[in-house]
């Protein structure tokens, strides 16, 4: 197991280098540069422009800049934001809990609803629930996130007035962010109504962000279950006199989980990508919004560092998923 882990970690190295290369190249391919953007409409004199170029290291050839950047990463230094002059690392960890909280909630929403829905659909194959669920899932999957978000805001927040439109918590509350997770912090603060305010702010972004993973998980669970339900060992389980719950929920689901877990792992990538859009729409102060803002400001270190950290996050999640396979299905367990 340890040997397997080590070999898997080793494959991270090329992926890691690839990510740095791509993020480094892409942001530089965008027209415009940080200095022009920072100067804004006032503009900047050619002398001052040259001076800043040297100061920010842009006078060096690109490959030298890249190796300087790599050298920094190896030492754990992701650079400083051009705009805020704070280390990228600090900014990331100040904002990351917000994204993590939203992503976790979206994942719980997607798995919690998608898994049972897929199982029920498979068991009732061809019946009304199955058809209704699968067509709904297809709609959910094909719906553009921004449009779905706006629709929900108009109906739920606007017409019905049930949830707030944006932000993480009502302005009436203030407390120190001990953990960075608003749900936990609001509970710790002990202020009345703080928790429910945080919760109500979470509902819409969670639904919006979780919709696509929910649809994918439900469909994947259904097809995996259908395959497993025709297996011989399911017949054996039925011959034992097990209840439908014992057959479908234990014997079948355990075998169907492998492809579902894979999809869940892959959804984490989608989720973080979706978070960028969702956070922008709901003014959610997480890394998604931070990344978008930084791209518009041509804040090279932030974009590079942010992308890198997100990529590492996705890699870790997928490694965890691979490790989980063995626990779920002993047949593919490594020694």
């Amino acid at each position: 197991m340890l040997k397997y882990l080590a070999s898997r970690l080793l494959t991270f190295v090329p992926t890691f280098i690839g990510v740095t290369l791509i993020s480094f190249a892409f942001i530089r391919m965008l027209p415009g540069d940080p200095i022009t953007v920072m100067a804004g409409e006032r503009g900047v004199s050619p002398e001052r422009y040259q001076e800043l170029m040297v100061q920010l290291g842009f006078d060096q050839p690109v490959y030298v800049q890249y190796f300087e950047y790599l050298k920094g990463i190896v030492q754990g230094d992701l650079g400083m934001s051009f705009v805020t002059k704070k280390p990228v690392w600090d900014e990331f960890f100040a904002l990351f809990p917000a994204t993590l909280e939203l992503s976790l909630c979206a994942m719980i929403f997607a798995v919690g609803l998608g898994l049972p829905a897929g199982v029920i659909a498979a068991v009732n194959r061809g019946k009304f629930f199955d058809r209704a669920l699968m067509s709904t899932a297809l709609v959910g999957y094909s719906m553009p996130i921004f449009w779905w978000a706006l629709l929900l805001i108009i109906v739920v927040s606007g017409w019905l007035g049930l949830t707030p439109v944006s932000g993480r918590i009502s302005l009436m509350f203030y407390f120190p962010d001990t953990t960075g997770f608003m749900l936990i912090d609001s509970l710790l603060s002990g202020q009345k109504g703080a928790f429910s305010s945080a919760l109500s702010h979470l509902i819409l972004p969670t639904i919006v962000l979780g919709t696509i993973p929910l649809a994918v998980i439900a469909r994947q669970t259904r097809s995996a279950m259908l395959e497993v339900l025709s297996e011989d060992y399911i017949r054996t389980a039925r011959a034992k006199g097990l209840s439908p719950y014992g057959i479908n929920g234990i014997h079948a689901l355990r075998n169907a989980l492998i492809p579902v877990i894979t999809v869940i792992g892959l959804s984490v990538g989608t989720l973080l990508a979706g978070a960028i859009l969702t956070e922008t729409i709901f003014s959610w102060p997480g890394i998604g919004k931070w990344m978008v803002d930084s791209i518009f400001r041509r804040d090279y270190p932030v974009v590079q560092g942010g992308l890198l950290l997100i990529a590492v996050m996705v890699m870790i999640v997928n490694l965890t998923v691979d490790m989980l396979y063995g626990f779920i299905n002993p047949k593919i367990r490594k020694r």
Binding site: D232, Y233, T236, S243, H251, R254, N255, K331
Partner: peptide
């Protein structure tokens, strides 16, 4: 439900393919 009390207890069945008739996950 009443039938499941008989099937598996008083009437039991074994199948042709032992390798695929047992659940690989348990």
């Amino acid at each position: 439900k009443a039938r499941r009390k008989i099937v598996g207890k008083d009437i039991a069945m074994i199948f042709q393919e032992p390798m695929s008739s047992l659940n690989p996950c348990f």
